[in-house]
Design a protein around this nucleic acid. Sequence first.
DNA 1: GCCGTTTTCGGCCCGACTGTTTTCAGTCG
Length: 575
Amino acid sequence: MPVHNADIATIFEEIADLLEIENANPFRIRAYRNAARIVLNLSEELSILVKQGEDPARLPGIGSSLAEKIVEIVETGRCQALEKLRRQGSPGLTELLHIPGLGPKRVAALYHELDIHNTEQLFRAAKDGRLQQLPGFGKKTEQHILEMIETHVKQAKRFKLGTAAQYADSLQQFMQQNSEVNEVVVAGSFRRCRETVGDLDILVTADKSAPVMDHFASYDEITEILSKGKTRSTVILKNGLQVDLRVVPVQSFGAALHYFTGSKAHNIAIRRRARQRGLKVNEYGVFKGNRIIAGDTEESVYQSVDLPYIPPELRENRGEIEAAEDGKLPRLITVEDIKGDLHAHTTATDGHNSIEEMADAARARGLAYIAITEHSRRLTVTHGLDEKRLLKQIEEIDKLNDRLKGITVLKGIEVDILEDGSLDLPDRVLARLDLVIGAVHSKFHLSRQKQTTRILRAMERPYFTMLAHPTGRLLERREPYDVDMWRVIDQARQRGCYLELNCHPERLDLLDTHCLLAKQAGVLVSINTDAHSIADLDNLRYGVGQARRGWLEAEDVLNTLPLKTLRQYLKATMT
DNA sequence: GCCGTTTTCGGCCCGACTGTTTTCAGTCG
C-alpha cells in the first residue's frame, strides 16, 4: 500500500485538529498545519524520497520531529503520535471542528460537558435546547450551529474557477454601480488562479464604507448575511458560494489587496520578514512604529521588505520569496504570448461549430493558428473519426487554408491511447497530419504500473506529438488515473514530445506542480483549450493562469512559437 | 514543533465581527 503525500498531509491535519481540541501550544499546532501544506505542495512523492535515503528535514518547515514522523508513516503506514491522540479523545471530534462556527474551545466544551462526539449528537443536543445552557453558548449560538449543520451537509464544497468567475464578474459590476465605490477587485484564491475557490474575496476602495456595505447587502442573489460590519461583510449566495466584502481607504489599497490575495502562508512569510526589519504589515499598510511607510500599492509593500513585486499566482510560499530575493522570479507567461491553439473539435465529432467558424473565432481572438483535433473512432459516443473520415477532413482543411486569410488551420487528431499503449488509428494516416495528440479516454482504473506503461508506450509511437490532459482528472467528478508523472515527463524529454495543459475549467490538467517539473526537465507544455465550441476558446485564460501557478514562462510553452517555428517543432515529433 | 541578519532559547502575523462574559473569548480569514 503506497503512502502518498496527501495521506501524510491528512495525518498531520488530524494531529493538528486533535491538538487544538486539547488546547495545545498554538504554534505547535501551526507547525503541523504548515507541514501538511508543505507536504501537499511537493511535486515529489515523499515515500520515494525517503526510500532513496533523503532526509525530509531538509525541507523548510520540517524539523527533526516531523521528519521522523514522515519516515514512520512512509515505512509503516501508521503514526503512533496520532494513534495516541485518538485514544485520548474521540475520533469524531475532528468532524465537529469542521463545522463553521465551531472551534477547538467549543468542541472541547461540547465533549467534556455534554459528551458530544459527532455531528449527529450535536444536532440532537441543539434541537433539545441543551447547548444554550453551556457557559459561553447562548440561544443565538445554538440556532447558528443548527443552521450550520444543515447547510454544512449539503455545502462545504469548492467552486471551479470558471464557475466562480461568472459570479465574480457580475458581482464586480454590481459593486461598481455604487457611486461611493472607487475600485473593485476580486482578490483571494480567485486572483491567484487556483483551480477551485472556496469563496470570493472582494476588495473595494471607498471613503465611506456604510453606503457600500448597504449596497452590497442589497445584491439580489444573496440568500443569507452571515455578518455585516464597517469594513467587512460576509454573505452566502443562492448557489452556496460565500462572498466576503472588504472596504478600505484608497491609501491602504495595496496593503489590503496584498493581504486579501493571500495565500495565508505567503502573507505570514511576508509579515515575518517585516518583523525582522522592525516593521509591521497589516491590511492597512506597512508601519514603522505608528508611522505608515507603505501600502498604497502592492509594489510598495514588497519594496518595504526588500523584494520585487511577486505575481499573485506565485504567492503560495513555495519558494517564490527566496526566488524574489535572488532575483530569480520567472517572467510569467501571459495570454498575449499565446500564438495559437493546438486542440479543438468541430461538428465532425462532438463539437458545436464548423472548422471555418472555429478558425474565424480563433483569428478574432488574435490567434495565428488553430489545430483541429477530433476524437478517433474508438470514442464512438463522440462519433470519432475513422481513417476514411479523417482523410476527408484533411482534404477539407487543405481547401479551407487556400482561401482563409490571417489564420492557418493545422491538421491533427486526438487519438485514443488503447489499453496496450497502441494508438487507435494506423501510422499511415497519422503520418499525413501536422500533429498527433494522444489521449486516454478508457480504462481509468488500471494499476499505476500498467497505466504508466500504457502511456509511455503510446509516447514511443513514431507519430506522437503530445499527451492530452495527462492525469485525466475531472475536478469534483473524477480522480486522476494512477500514473507516474515523473516517468511521463522524463519520457517526454527523452522522446522529444510535448505535454498538454488542458484549459477546460473542469480539467486544468497538467497540474501546476507538474508544469514546474516539466519546465525543470526542459519539456515544453502546450496550453490548449480543447474547445468544443467558439465560446470555449475563451477558456485560455484559465489555462494560462494554471501555467503561471506552475512558474511557466513564454519560452516554456510550445504554442507561443510563431507558426513557422512551430511547424518545425511539430515535424520533429513525427518520425 | 520550527527556527536563527536581536541564533540554540524564546519567540512565533494580525485584525474584524459576533455573541454573551459588562470587558472579552471564540472564531474566522
